[in-house]
Amino acid sequence: MDVTSAFGAALSLIFNLDPQFLQIVGLSLRVTLTAVLLAALIGLPLGALLAVTRFPGRSVIIVLVNGLMGLPPVVAGLIVFLLLSRSGPLGSLGWLFTPTAMVIAQTLLVLPIIIALTRGTIEDLWSEYREHLTSLGLTGWRAVPTLLWDGRFALATGLLAGFGRASAEVGAVLIVGGNIAAYTRTMTTSIALETSKGDLPLALGLGLVLITLTVAINAAAYGASRIGARFAG
């Protein structure tokens, strides 16, 4: 079908530097990167703590977190929507239909991935480092900084997975952001909108741009972590 015109649309979007298009791409990146950053700040230490501590209910939390990795974006969106709606418990913040709401929803989506992958990575590292760190008096949360630092290249993969999930999802941001033009319209919600308007070449064009960006970011991160990993041995 319109694959050629889709490529045409994608290329003209990129090379004409259409300001509206740049704004959409900028917002998408800002929202997703902020969400991944937040989820990393929360998820890395929590995942590492889960790996190095033992407490009643730990396995319940692990199962829960693993399950939440598959949380459907619309459900995450709905939860955040209900929390942030004016009639919801956090309605007075006035965050619904703002980029902040989208960041929260995506953080919620990415967090379980980062916690679960961090726990796995750090658990392996902990079994290797455990006696040495214990000998140095670094147990429990005191072991976390060492483990996170030494696992940084493996952990980058988890962050990338989180980034992939957040940048690709449409359900949650559509619900909590409202797809408001020039304010909460991201690449994915634009794609949904253009599809519904029947402008399939433009939708596919945006899709190509999204794929290209995602691949580029992954490639950069992969390259950086390979170089780093080679040094760290």
Partner: peptide, 13 residues
């Protein structure tokens, strides 16, 4: 008192 293990634990640094 300090301990050295059979398989030395080398941090990735």
């Amino acid at each position: 008192h300090a301990m050295v293990f059979q398989r030395p634990v080398m941090l990735r640094r």
